[in-house]
Each structure stands twice: as C-alpha cells, then as structure tokens.
Computed example of a mutant assay.
Amino acid sequence: MQVDARAKAAQPEWKRILPGAAFALMMGAVGLWLARLTFFQNLGLSALPLAILLGLIIGNSGLISNVPALNPGLEFAKAKLLRLGIILFGFKLTFQDIAHVGLPGIAIAIAMVASVLVVTWVLGKYLFKMDDETTLLVGTGAAICGAAAVLAAEPVLKAKSHAVSVAVATVVVFGTLAMFLYPLIGHALGMQPYAYGLYAGSTIHEVAQVVVAGRAFGEEAANYAVIEKMIRVILLAPFLFALSAWLRARTQATTHTRTPLVIPWFAVLFMLVGAFNSLHLLDPAWVQGILQFDNWILAAAMAALGVRTHWRSVKQAGAKPLLLATSVFVWLIVGGYAINTLVLLLFV
C-alpha cells in the first residue's frame, strides 16, 4: 500500500488530474447535449444546471465511489476549469450593447443587483438565521446571472459544495417559474416591449430564462431583455471585488489583524476579455466557437461540483434556502416592477 501511495505521489501532476478532468468534461458534454433537446429548451434549462444535476445523480449513485483516481481531476475541474470558464464568459459581453438600453437600463440593473443583495442578506441572516455562504450564494444567483454567478462567487467565498448546489437549485426552480409568469404579468399590465424587456432582463435569473421569457412577449422585447441581462453580467466583476474587500474587512474586524486583500484575478480577466470583445477584433465565428468551448468547461465544472456534493449535505440545509429564495423571488417580481417603473418615470 505504501509503495502504491509513493508511486501515485511521484506521478506527474497532469497524469493525476487527467482521469477526473476527462470524466468531468465528458459529463459536461452530456449536459450540453441535453440542453439541445427540445424538452429542456422549452423548460429554459441550460447546460449548467443540467450538468450539475447529472453530477449529483452520478456522485450519489455510488457508481464512482470506489474510484479515488478521479478525485484530483474533479477538484481541478471545479476550481481551475471554473476560473477559466468565468474568464472566457467575458466573450458574451460588448460594452456597445449598453447604448441600446441607455441610462435607464444601467440605472435599473445597478438598483436591482444592489437591492436583491441587500434583501437577501437581511432576510437570510436576520429572519431565517442562515449561514453566510448559502445566503450570499442565493443572493448572487438571483441578483446577477444565475448559476454562472454562483460559480464565480464560490472561490471568493470558499463555499462548500452543498451550499453551491442549493443556490443553483433555487436558480433553476425560480428562474423556470419566471419564464411562465413574466409574459402573463407583462400582458396583464399592458407593458410596452422596451419596458417589459428591461423588467425581464433586470429580474430573471439566467440568460437562457431571460431569452425564453422575452421571446414569449415578442422579439423586440427579447432583444432589450438580453441586453439588460448583459449589463447585470458586467456587474459580476465589481461585485466580486466588493465581496472580497468586505470579507477582508470583516475578518480584520473580528481577528484584529491585518489581512491582505484577496484579488479575484479571474474577475479582472473576465472584464478585460469583455473589453477586448468590445473591439470586435475577432471574427464572430471565432467568438461563437470560444463561447461554445466556454459553455463546455463551465458545464464540466458544474458536473464536478455535483459529483462532490452529497444529498445528505443538501438535505441538512433544510427548507430555509427555499424560503429565502421564494422571498427573493417575490421581491424580484414586485420590487423589481416598482424599481423599473420609478426609474423609467425619472429618465423617460
């Protein structure tokens, strides 16, 4: 046994990582395939939540519990591949898109992100008495860009796998509900395409869910909704910096020792990639190819996260995360409409 352990330790790092990383990439590919099926497209489920669900099923089935050789690669996938995926996610951005929704769109996006984070923190900490990690992850997913934002916040928070899985689950449940509810709300209130697009884009969790809810109202509304959603995505990097600085200040206040500021460099690179993409130097076909690759590695990171999450841990979280997410969803609908209406009255 000692000889085997020494032999494994003497292996090059890439050989230790390769089996688990390849397995994660394979699960990510399955998640991408599932996301192309009409059934899941109609539900607005993208590859990321499908990949984590696949990982949860495989990880908790016992099929790979006796294959420890996969562990290094799975850890690599949910850490390093995750960061690379967030960096390349910047190719979804072009700063020129902001001009299409104007100052009202920018103001609404900032107000919604800030309000959702505050509401989530107050309810999670003081009403439901939840832990910081789960509270912040639920709020991040609802405020910014769903599962991708939850994944981006995970390394900054150093969150446990089950907290990430719970937060992603709330994104899936309430984002799916939003796709069906929002067109009904928009028609009932007699909203115009521009106003509806800003409302849907500023308050629905995932990009895919925004697209479905927007198209259900009309193509013009869908275009405004996606651009508004992209402004929220752009706010991901400033949020991660603010989160890192806040965690540092809180640690210093409790320990009375100076700690260095942990800079989320992947967030810096995410913004730089977005700035580069705004120059339109790459052929659109290349950008599309990069985004497809990016979706694959993010799905692989999600799948690895799912494998490393045990049902027992998710069950131990109890009903509180669901109650918190329900409360935040009500705020997104009601508070979001109020903020959208007020901003449009001020600017238009």
Results as ranks from 00 to 15, higher is better:
E219Y: 06
A221P: 00
N223C: 00
N223D: 05
A225Q: 07
V226Y: 05
V226H: 06
V226C: 11
I227S: 11
M230Y: 06
M230C: 09
L236W: 02
P238R: 10
F239D: 04
L243K: 09
W246V: 09
A249R: 08
R250F: 01
Q252V: 08
Q252N: 14
R258N: 12
T259C: 01
P260W: 00
I263A: 04
P264W: 03
V268P: 07
F270C: 00
G274W: 00
G274L: 07
N277S: 13
S278D: 11
L279A: 13
H280R: 14
L281C: 08
L282V: 01
D283T: 01
P284V: 02
A285G: 01
Q288N: 15
F293R: 15
N295V: 08
W296E: 14
A299P: 04
A301N: 05
A301Q: 06
A303M: 09
A304F: 04
G306S: 13
G306F: 03
G306I: 04
R312Q: 13
V314S: 03
V314K: 04
Q316A: 15
G318R: 10
A319R: 10
A319E: 03
K320R: 15
P321Y: 01
L324D: 08
L324V: 07
L324H: 05
A325G: 02
A325W: 02
V328Q: 08
F329S: 13
L332P: 02
I333L: 13
Y337L: 12
A338M: 14
I339Y: 12
I339P: 11
L344S: 12
L344T: 05
